[in-house]
């Protein structure tokens, strides 16, 4: 088998194993709940029968490994279980399926993340590469000063500064991003503009700095000096000699920051009351609605693992040592 294929398959297997352990960790979270949590959810007046029925629904009468198998099997079929909220002591169950809660919100979050990434990635790469090429120039130093300040700010400070400037003082954008499934596309874009801008500022700063460092590191290689000593033009040195070796570090930078974006979404959604999965997770944490929290954590972690997996695979398939084995 071609070594590239072997390495990629190995990496994929690693990803699956990681995902398995992560799901195990997320599942076992429930095991740490206090014994009387069913009463806490159903209320003090819950009858023994109601509690017993709830415990049976959760499978607490079965051993943990069987419950894990049931749970993971259901998750793979898209069934994320029933929410804890909406239950009552009398046994009336108005709880909703977690999948139904998450579905539309996941769509909103992906919309926001995608909108941000589409602008952020090209912008950050452009800034990172140009500052690396003109290292030490006024342009480089100003971009660096601005980004160093931005990465030191918590996301909510950036968000509120934007609200102060673009909502309160100059009403350009709405402060609340109250979108739903029926919102038309451009109105959606308009209403999501401020959360996207907040994320953009934070992500671009991080991604630009990491791109710059990676490119500077690359330009210090002896083969780049050799290319210069061959009398090649600066453009040729960059395009022919630096770029083919830059894919791996750049893919890592992009993946790392998109993963970061996934997390940054949580705070930003709360600030702008954006109906996404991040806000849902925070609300569920406050309400201690464990099945929803688990599902959200699984989705976030899965995305994170997937992004890193993609970056690693890009690094593998652009590595000349693996592409052209001895």
């Amino acid at each position: 088998m071609h070594p590239i294929l072997t390495t990629v398959l190995q990496r994929l297997a690693m990803g699956v194993i990681t995902l398995f352990f992560v799901s195990l960790i997320i599942f076992s979270a429930v095991e740490f709940l206090p014994g009387d949590f069913t009463e806490a959810i159903l209320g003090q007046s819950a009858t023994d029968e109601t509690v017993a029925a709830f415990r049976a629904e959760l499978g607490l009468d079965k051993p943990a490994y069987l419950r894990y198998i049931d749970w993971i099997g259901a998750v793979m079929q898209g069934d994320l279980g029933q929410s804890f909220s909406g239950r009552s002591a009398s046994g009336v169950d108005r709880s909703r399926a977690v999948a139904d809660l998450i579905g539309p919100r996941l769509h909103n979050t992906l919309f926001l993340a995608l909108m941000t990434a589409l602008v952020a990635v090209p912008l950050a790469l452009f800034l990172g590469i140009t500052t690396a090429l003109w290292r030490g120039s006024f342009y480089d130093r100003s971009v660096n000063a601005v980004t160093l300040t931005t990465i030191s700010m918590p996301e909510f400070l950036v968000a509120y500064l934007l609200i102060l400037l673009l909502v309160s003082l100059n009403p350009v954008f709405p402060s609340l991003a109250n979108i739903d499934a029926d919102t038309p596309f451009w109105e959606r874009v308009y209403k999501s503009a401020l959360p996207a801008l907040t994320l953009l500022l934070v992500i671009v700063a991080h991604m630009m700095r990491m791109t710059r460092a990676a490119i500077i590191n690359l330009l210090a290689s002896p083969y780049i000096e050799m290319a210069r000593l061959k009398g090649l033009s600066p453009a040729t040195v960059i395009l022919r000699h630096a770029l083919p070796n830059a894919w791996a570090p750049i893919a890592n930078v992009v993946a790392f920051n998109l993963a970061y974006l996934v997390v940054g979404v949580v705070v930003v959604e709360v600030v702008f009351v954006y109906p996404g999965i991040g806000q849902l997770m925070v609300d569920s944490v406050s309400a201690r609605d464990i099945p929803v929290v688990q599902a959200c954590a699984l989705i976030f972690a899965g995305t994170y693992i997937l992004l890193n997996l993609i970056a690693d695979i890009v690094s593998i398939v652009t590595n000349p040592r693996l592409l052209h084995p001895r």
Binding site: M226, L229, N245, P320
Partner: peptide
């Protein structure tokens, strides 16, 4: 023209 000390590092791997 220039011939570098470490040819392994001075040739572009790509």
């Amino acid at each position: 023209a220039y011939v570098a000390q470490s040819a392994a590092a001075a040739f572009n791997p790509a």
